[in-house]
Amino acid sequence: MANLKEIRNRITSIGSTMQITSAMKMVSAAKLKKAQDAITAMRPYSSKLTELLQNLSATLDSDAGGAYSIQRPIHKVLLVTITSNRGLCGGFNSSITKEVIKTVNEKYADKTVDIFAIGKKGGAILSKLYNLVDSRNDIYDDLTFDNVALIAEELMSFYAEGKYDRIEIVYNQFKNAATQLPQVEQFLPIKPIEGGDAAAVNSDYIFEPSKEEIVLALIPKSLKTQLYKSIRDSFASEHGARMTAMHKATDNAKDLRDDLLLTYNKARQAAITNEILEIVGGAEALNN
Rank of each mutant, 00 (worst) to 15 (best):
M1E: 06
M1C: 02
M1R: 06
A2H: 08
L4F: 05
K5C: 00
E6D: 06
I7D: 04
I11V: 05
T12M: 05
S13N: 10
G15L: 03
S16H: 12
T21S: 11
M24G: 08
K25C: 02
A29H: 13
K31C: 13
K33F: 15
K34L: 15
K34H: 15
A35P: 10
D37V: 15
D37F: 15
Y45R: 00
K48S: 15
L49D: 06
L49I: 08
T50E: 07
L53S: 06
N55Y: 14
S57P: 09
S57R: 05
L60Y: 13
D61S: 11
D61M: 09
G66E: 02
L78N: 10
I82W: 04
R86H: 13
L88I: 10
C89H: 10
C89N: 12
G90D: 09
G90M: 04
F92L: 01
I96V: 10
K98P: 03
V100Y: 05
K102L: 06
E106R: 09
K107G: 02
K107H: 10
I115A: 04
G119E: 07
K120E: 14
K120N: 10
G123F: 01
S127N: 15
K128T: 09
K128V: 02
N131T: 08
L132D: 07
V133E: 14
S135V: 05
R136K: 15
D138C: 00
Y140A: 01
D141S: 13
D141H: 07
D142H: 11
T144V: 05
T144N: 05
D146C: 00
D146F: 01
V148P: 14
L150Q: 08
L150E: 10
A152G: 08
E153Y: 05
E154K: 09
Y159I: 00
I167M: 04
V170P: 00
N172T: 06
A178D: 12
L181Y: 13
V184R: 05
V184A: 02
L188D: 01
I193Q: 09
G196M: 07
A198I: 11
Y205N: 14
I206L: 15
F207R: 07
F207P: 02
F207N: 08
E208P: 00
E208T: 02
S210F: 14
K211R: 15
E213F: 15
E213A: 14
I214Y: 13
V215N: 08
P220Y: 09
K221N: 07
K224V: 06
Q226N: 11
L227K: 03
Y228M: 02
Y228T: 11
K229R: 10
S230A: 14
D233C: 09
S234E: 08
S237W: 11
G240A: 03
G240S: 06
A245C: 01
H247E: 04
A249R: 05
T250Y: 11
D251K: 02
N252R: 04
K254Q: 07
K254M: 06
D255I: 06
L256I: 04
R257M: 07
D258S: 12
L260C: 02
Y264R: 04
N265Y: 09
A267L: 12
A270W: 08
T273D: 15
T273S: 14
I276F: 14
I279M: 01
G282P: 03
G282H: 10
E284F: 12
A285I: 12
L286P: 05
N287P: 04
N287G: 06
N288Y: 14
